[in-house]
Design a protein around this nucleic acid. Structure first.
Length: 218
DNA sequence: ATCCCGAGGG
DNA sequence: CCCTCTGGAT
């Protein structure tokens, strides 16, 4: 099966069964999503959502967060992965927002990646979810699922390479949704260690499944 | 032991 | 390219 056909069937299935996928991070404005996504590295969304209410209550905007010390912020995010790094990044991020962006979240990937703690993945999420731009953020789920199914060549061994390969085949209008479909599929079905092939709706197009199904049946 | 919507630094 | 950061869940 060609990649184009895999894409078409993958997109068809989820268009029908998950027509309006959205992030599971809880937020109410661009600033909050930027903070939440920055916190989400190597951490579950559930854990982030347990942490952000108190954080947003104490620091409701970039102005208040910019005046905080990293030690103060650390207190609020200590149950998150890498709390020291993230606390420093958040304060630095807020200070740059105030200094260079009038306290607002930038609307280009180019500007977003200038912020401390914001790399290409986070910038792509903000550009896509907040600013409705057709950017594909490649996180651990998107990377694993794309390669396992065979949506991208096995030679795509970096997040950037996977991003470019996905962008070649996904219609612009579906990039935002496809990002969430790949994440949700990875989070709940195509698990990293033991993918749940027995309940997977897209085994028909899956390269990994076609190679391993004999072992799975026995 | 391995993984979770990574980023920065060497 | 590598390494480190670093808590919670399974």
């Amino acid at each position: 099966m060609q990649r184009k056909e895999r894409f078409e069937k993958f997109l068809d299935y989820f268009s029908t069964h998950s027509p309006e996928p959205e992030t599971e991070l809880v937020y109410s404005n661009p600033y909050e999503l930027l903070v939440a996504v920055s916190l989400s590295a190597q951490c579950t969304d559930k854990r982030v959502n347990l942490t952000t209410p108190a954080l947003f209550n104490r620091y409701p905007d970039a102005a208040s967060l910019a005046k905080a010390t990293s030690d103060e912020v650390f207190h609020y995010i200590r149950s998150i992965s890498y709390p020291n790094n993230k606390a420093k990044h958040l304060v630095g991020m807020a200070q740059m927002l105030m200094k260079d962006f009038n306290g607002e979240v930038p609307d280009t990937v180019e500007d977003l990646v200038k912020l401390p703690g914001v790399g290409r993945k986070t910038a792509n999420v903000i550009a896509s979810v907040i600013w409705q731009q057709p950017t594909m953020a490649v996180d651990t789920h998107v990377y694993r699922v794309s390669r396992r199914i065979g949506l991208v060549p096995q030679t795509a061994t970096t997040p950037l390479a996977v991003e470019k390969q996905l962008m070649k085949y996904i219609p612009t209008a579906l990039v935002h949704k496809a990002h969430h479909w790949l994440i949700l599929h990875g989070r709940y079905t195509c698990l990293a260690r033991t993918p749940k092939c027995e309940v997977c709706p897209v085994t028909e197009i899956c390269m990994w499944y076609s190679k391993n199904k004999k072992k799975l049946v026995n």
